[in-house]
Amino acid sequence: MNSTDPSTSALLIVGHGSTVNPDSAAPSLVHAAAIRRRRIFGQVACAFWKEEPGMRDWPFLFDESIRDVYVVPNFISEGYFTRTVIPRELEMDGAPGAVTPRPDTGQRWHYCEPVGNHPSMTELLLRRAREVAPSVPERETSLLIVGHGTGLNDNSAVAAKEQAARIGAMGQYARVLSTYMEEPPLIADWAKLTDTPNVVVVPFFISDGLHSYQDIPVLLGIESEITASASERLRQGEVFMQNPRHLHGRNLYYASAIGTEAQFADVIVEQAGAGSV
């Protein structure tokens, strides 16, 4: 987008969303508002798989003054959604970097890499780990990166595995593992997978939604059953997870989802090709 006029360029952040609570879409909406305030795009909009506007509303999201639209999937990994669902629903060429012309308006729609592919993910995961357990010695700590894992597309687990390998190679933590909700190594087996007195778990997820806020705490044993959503507990005056929890003779620290980090707005802008601002 560097060679085009910012006022005629638009950003579309595509998120998953939820019909059950607002937490899934919240980070995308917050980052969109933050990017809008910077005035580096003529328009900034979101579209969702499960919420409104739906992706099929793409023809109605931008004014005719917009010439180029940069579509950034706010997804952690390349996989079923980024390769199949989003291109199909937006009626776009789904290859990263592909440009789809829109004959009706003359607009050019650019398909960008998902946020989870950005090189800063490693540093953001490490920052989350340090924030949630600021005083624990890393040599006596295992760091578990949790991804979704699914049978629909093998790529969904790759991102978490790559991040765990990168952080492990730094040699800071006693052990770094990628774990999953639905495929081995299972996050539910965290106590068997680690042998250190401290265990830090960072969900490699976009939002504090159903999976990271409600499902994983049950799998970890922090909660005995699924709790109210993050937004509902916040409305009731409750704080995010209290750390550490003492389980299986260990200190267990559980972080907030990485996608709620304010710096994600920078990542979205950079994935759109706008460069650092």
Binding site: P53, D57, F60, F62
Partner: peptide
């Protein structure tokens, strides 16, 4: 326009189309 697009996403544009 920004406010209406948040209250009723995509509907202003759909009517224009």
């Amino acid at each position: 326009r920004l406010a209406l697009d948040s209250f009723y996403p995509g509907r202003r544009g759909a009517f224009a189309a």
